[in-house]
Design a protein around this nucleic acid. Structure first.
Lengths: 164, 164
DNA sequence: ATATGAATGCAACAAATTTGCAATCCATAT
DNA sequence: ATATGGATTGCAAATTTGTTGCATTCATAT
């Protein structure tokens, strides 16, 4: 019987997705796998650079690739900067707290809708000024015209006539 | 008896906030007041320019001012671009749908948590691939150190020991 | 009408991200 | 093991978004 892992393995992740293994991709994945909060591209460059030689542009390209393959989630808070986090089984979708003063991002526990109700009644260390709920996907038009150049068209939830 | 207005009036909004009325501010507000979805700074510049002469920098400065005064809400979806919408009585906080293909943003109906549960069971025109929940405010550290330079410190919800 | 502080325009800067192309690397078939 | 070809990376430069400093213009209270 195999032990359950706490983190994904970069090499295995690439293999499972049918992606070529390169030192740069492993380093970027490692940075994300062992991060305790979403990272900016610059953070990832910095951490990956401790491991190997890697260019800023390569970081962006790898992140874009990983997002297309739904290995990584991209999110954006204020001030026009993207943050990235693993989208693996060890890191299910969850809310984030963004401090508008120091910019620190805190991952909040993943909650079902009914759990959220309870959670919202609990004391908190944060002053919440605003809550943003974003649904991301394809609009009706784009879903219909999705003939060409659609890289990330695998595994999304069809909802027309069904559930969201 | 006065008719209920469907939209805010730009001049009145500025007056109520104690802000100087200028052609540029009115034009920026008009763009936002009559928009049917959140706008990028570039969109606002374009629309305001149809009305008056206005500089790109001025748009950013006015948006920043309006956000500080909680007249306007700022939000950010993918790719690190800010979008802005009115934060007035005619436009209560609500979720947004972001199409990752065409970038169009659709405002969704404002919902309480219990309404959301029902809403999520309804058919939809969107393929929702991901849901982002962002809580924005001040972390514990920053709330304590909030002595100096705190412009937007009016009217936020204190939650330590209380409700989020 | 005039003075004064606030608001705007302009130019330049800064940061994040993207693009084009040449050089290098990886995976596979020999 | 090695050659090969397509994929991946590095580098430079461009693009986009947003910011800063300073001179000029504007709004408003006298």
């Amino acid at each position: 019987m195999r032990m359950e892992q706490k983190h994904c393995d970069a090499t295995e992740t690439l293999k499972k997705a049918g992606l070529t293994k390169t030192d740069q991709r492993v380093a970027v994945l490692d940075a994300l796998i062992y991060a305790d909060c979403p990272l900016k591209a610059g953070d990832i460059l910095q951490r990956a650079s401790r491991q190997i030689k890697i260019n800023r542009v390569t970081v962006y390209r790898i992140l874009s690739l990983l997002c297309d393959h739904k290995i990584v989630r991209e999110m954006s808070f204020e001030h026009g900067i993207s943050h990235y986090e693993m989208a693996c089984v060890h890191n299910p979708v969850h809310p984030h707290f963004y401090c508008r003063r120091c910019g620190r991002i805190t991952c909040l526990p993943p909650l079902t809708l009914s759990q959220a109700w309870d959670w919202l009644s609990q004391p908190s260390d944060f002053s919440v000024e605003r809550i943003n709920v974003q649904l991301i996907g394809l609009c009706a038009d784009c879903r219909n015209n999705e003939n060409s150049n659609s890289v990330a068209s695998e595994g999304f939830i069809k909802t027309s006539g069904g559930k969201v």
